[in-house]
């Protein structure tokens, strides 16, 4: 095998190989992890992270980056908790829809203001965090008890966490959208060559707005899932999820340079990210040191998946 074919193989199936290796390593160290109950509770705990990974895939497919997702998830959790006494179940829907609209606005602004996505979303991160802090006065807010949406999300059907089922449904819908719709075609093409796609008559601002709406909406859904489990929210509840989410997307094989990858690969990447966390925990290292693992994984994954022909000058 030449170097190129090996690289090609790694790009195509690398994530699955890595998942298998890590799974083997983790289950050797802690055999209990392979029990159904352990897996199920792991998936339930990590459903918020997985849904964020699903959403974050779309901007990255365009070659953009949404750094505001974790702050959006926190803000959504706060808003849902605060609105729950008044709106009941509707609070969840309102928050997710509102987040999608705000995300869409972010995406639209990137094109209109011609400001790079990481700047807009970094700014948005600050805005969401500030609003969350202000609304909660930097404190915890609890959710009103007995609201059906949150109770459903926190429980199980057929022994499987409902939150995880929702992740699978959303991932499946996005996959269908990417494969079967004109929008999906435009998203991949946009990531491959934005200018050529624009000159082909594609409404690039709308495509970008949709991708960011999806990522914000999913992040808000993640926030809603979090409070359905913990019943409490704070303005920083989901902040630590930004980097694992990005790790999940790029480790899954979605290239940061755009145009390559998909939602299902990201889910596999997400499982890897979860196992890295578990691995760090069972190895007895302090939990923060998972960041070292994430940092190095992100570097290796991007090094393997970036299409260097597309970046002329490295900046």
């Amino acid at each position: 095998m030449t170097k190129d074919t090996i690289l090609m193989f790694l790009r195509r199936n690398g994530a699955l190989v890595v998942l298998a290796i890590i799974l083997t390593a983790v289950s050797t160290a802690a055999p209990g992890i392979l029990r159904w109950r352990a897996i199920n509770s792991l998936l339930q705990d990590n459903a918020p992270l997985l849904i964020m990974i699903v959403g974050a895939t779309l901007p990255i497919l365009l070659g953009c980056l949404d750094l505001s997702i974790a702050a959006m998830a926190s803000l959504a959790a706060v808003m849902a908790a605060m609105l729950s006494p008044a709106l009941g179940s509707a609070s969840a829907y309102v928050v997710v829809a509102g987040a999608a609209m705000i995300g869409g606005l972010q995406g639209w602004m990137i094109g209109r203001l011609q400001v790079p996505s990481f700047v807009i979303s970094l700014g948005a991160l600050g805005i969401f965090k500030g609003i969350g802090m202000y609304l909660t006065a930097a404190d915890m807010v609890g959710i009103a008890p007995g609201i059906s949406v949150y109770e459903t999300l926190g429980s199980r059907s057929f022994g499987i966490s409902n939150a995880f089922i929702l992740v699978l449904i959303v991932a499946w819908l996005f996959t269908l959208m990417l494969k079967l719709s004109n929008l999906g075609r435009n998203i991949y093409a946009f990531g491959a060559n934005e200018i050529a796609v624009y000159i082909s008559g594609v409404r690039r601002d709308m495509v970008r707005a949709f991708a960011f709406a999806a990522s914000s909406g999913c992040a808000a859904l993640g926030g809603v899932m979090m409070i359905s489990q913990t019943m409490f929210a704070s303005a920083t509840v989901a902040n630590s999820l930004l980097l694992p989410a990005l790790v999940g997307v790029v480790v899954g094989g979605t290239a940061i340079s755009g145009g390559v990858g998909g939602v299902l690969s990201s889910l596999i990447g997400g499982l890897i990210a979860i196992l890295i966390r578990v691995g760090v925990t069972i190895s007895g290292l302090p939990p923060e040191s998972q960041d070292v693992a994430f940092g190095i994984t992100i570097l290796i994954a991007v090094a393997l998946t970036t299409d260097r022909a597309k970046i002329g000058l490295v900046k």
Binding site: L62, G63, C64, L65, M109, I110, G111, L113, Q114, V115, P116, S117, V119, I120, L122, G123, A124, L125, G126, I127, F128, K129, G130, I131, M133, Y134, A137, A138, E194, I195, Y198, G258
Partner: peptide
Amino acid sequence: LLQSALEGAVIIIAVAGSTWHLRRKVRVIK
């Protein structure tokens, strides 16, 4: 507590304002 919101808004406005004259239709923004 609103400080980070303010700073976030300032970043976006500052970058947008300072690069406004560079706006072109045929330009890649990532």
